[in-house]
Design a protein around this nucleic acid. Structure first.
Lengths: 358, 358
DNA sequence: CTGTTAGCGCATTCAG
DNA sequence: CTGAATGCGCTAACAG
């Protein structure tokens, strides 16, 4: 059997309380005693049973998650994963309160952050909007000593403790590499569709994409569809009409519904390469229906779980291995699609109240 | 606070012991009483704290893992992840014994399985070799009531309880799709490098690859390098000399070192598209050095952890959600490489004894 | 500074 | 068939 606190108490000739004190680095132990205990711990090869420790502590971590509302499929998938974490009966001991704010609304995010501060949670995770008042609110969070993690969309590194999301510049580069290979020929005409250049992740992706393609292709001016289906569809339809030779489209935002609709209505052969972001029911269907060639994805489930792990670590004062929490950039083709009921926000079942089971 | 067994005991007007009996479906409870308790459980929304339960049970799951020896980087990474799971102080309560057998040696695997049966573990995971004596041994494992999971390389579905690995046919298709796009032109000449057509994963990959490419490219006869660096290097060098117009190479086995060496020594432009399997220090370097264009990967860490989860579930008689344990087919380009110290068997540090820390 | 004691939520004897 | 009592490994008052 694994050694326990009793074994080390016996080995060091002290009581459980003392062992516990040095184990948890609490004051009130003579240096000499502490060393004896530490020696015993090392000698006996003790490792603390965290499950038992947490049980005894009865500690719960109250966290606040702030997410945008709206019909963005990716965000709704993200919400589903947060709700899943809330409902998870297992290990965790995490109590999440979920706050939904209007999308792209810096003021609303800032207000939500201030409200969260008042509730004194053990940590906050937020899908940030890169606006001045959000930055200020983030600084207030930090000032109040509450760990802050940005989710999916970042603020500056100085405004938060950690970013749980992908390297969007690398994602753009990846898209660029793929695009270059997929279109094949030199100096092909490529179009880029973004949501808004006001959000940081979109800017980063564009930069990376440009870098990967520099000198090889001809990039048309960026189309900004504000992630609005109707507007995006018009933009794309117009693009296809005006540039019949466009060889590739890179959709780096969340305007995929409009893009797909336009491609569907288009009666001539579609551009050779269409690459989009985020695996949602829509992009999945488009991939399967050969309207899109590749989808870059960030695993929303991983991001949520990673955010929770990091917040827990910060709350416990443990440094949290940054490198270990890096989120991958997934590439999906029609051929390596994961199954729809995987943990990806892909299932179409509602994420509402009746999530008690799972 | 979450409801506990006490709450439900009070609600149902019975004692803890009775609650526990119905919770664990044990006999000795009058039907009427049982119903009362179950009603209380439902009414109060009770969910068992597994951590506490395991603590009380003091249960440990002794598992046996059987892996091949040899210098195959992927397998060594797999071993590292198993050792990590062995050393993990956290939750788990899993006690793994690791058995290393010679690679591609069916008899050795069969012997290891029989030895494992004798040790009466709560479950066995094995990197299978698709040979008759292994199948027979697997059936003996099943007959003795021990859950059996195949890892990375499968046997027939009837010989094991679960397969913790990727869909290799889909992986082959993915490689084929990528290859088709990467080489660009129609009717390009493509070479395939395999380890041995005697292992199931290699055969499956080849089938998928062929299916994806059917009618579009010209496939040369499959080269079998037995995953041996020197032999593989000769095969590839010969290929490049004899077919100067070869546009793509698909390496579906573990012979990447030889492939890379041959490409490095080759003084003319290399084939337009080179696609390999498994992200190892070698393929990573080749990707970064533009000798390889894409690497398909299976996350060894996920596979090991998944195997453990499934074995635990089987040991507990819980059905284990098959769909949830599906392993993804990762695609890596130079641009979306994960960091080297991620959980991928990529770091070059030895996986030897001194793994106590982490 | 250090030791005693009583739980955390659950499982399991052993009596009734 | 049911209940009371004890302990898993660890933490946290509360005494010494």
């Amino acid at each position: 059997m694994r050694p326990t606190v009793h074994d080390i108490a016996a080995e060091a000739g002290v009581s459980l309380a003392t062992v516990d004190r040095v184990l948890n680095r609490r004051p009130g132990v003579k240096a000499a005693t502490r060393m004896r205990v530490e020696a015993a711990i090392a000698a006996i090869g003790f490792v603390r049973d965290m499950a038992a420790a947490n049980l005894a502590k009865g500690r719960v971590y109250p966290f606040t998650f702030i997410l945008p509302s709206g019909d963005n499929s990716f965000m709704r998938g993200l919400e589903r994963h947060v709700r899943e974490a809330m409902a998870r009966p297992s290990a965790d001991r995490v109590a999440i309160s979920l706050v939904i704010v209007p999308p792209f609304d810096g003021a609303a995010v800032a207000r939500a952050l201030d409200a969260a501060i008042a509730a004194e949670p053990a940590g906050i995770a937020v899908v940030a909007v890169d606006a001045p008042d959000v930055v200020e609110a983030a600084l207030r969070v930090q000032a109040s000593g509450i760990p802050l993690v940005t989710l999916v969309s970042d603020l500056g590194p100085s405004c938060r403790d950690h970013f749980a999301g992908i390297d969007n510049h690398a994602a753009g580069r990846t898209a660029g590499s793929l695009m270059r290979r997929f279109v094949g020929q030199e100096r092909a005409t490529i179009a880029v569709l973004a949501g808004s250049m006001l959000v940081r992740d979109h800017r980063d992706r564009l930069d990376g994409f440009r870098a990967a393609l520099s000198g090889t292709c001809r990039l048309l001016p960026v189309l900004e569809g504000q992630d609005d289906p109707a507007a995006t569809e018009r933009l794309i339809a117009d693009l296809l009409a005006r540039y019949p030779d466009v060889a590739g489209i890179y959709s780096l935002g969340a305007g995929n519904r409009g893009l797909i609709a336009a491609l569907q209505r288009h009666n001539r052969p579609r551009p050779r390469a269409v690459i989009a972001h985020e695996l949602t029911p829509h992009t999945r269907a488009a991939l399967e229906g050969d309207l899109i060639d590749a989808v870059l994805n960030q695993d929303a489930g991983h991001e949520v779980r990673s955010a929770i792990r990091v917040l827990k670590a910060k709350a416990d004062g443990i440094p949290a291995v940054e490198a270990q929490e890096r989120i991958r950039i997934d590439i999906f083709l029609k051929d390596n699609l994961p199954f729809a009921d995987d943990a990806d926000g892909l299932s179409l079942r509602p994420s509402g109240a009746a999530s008690g089971a799972n």
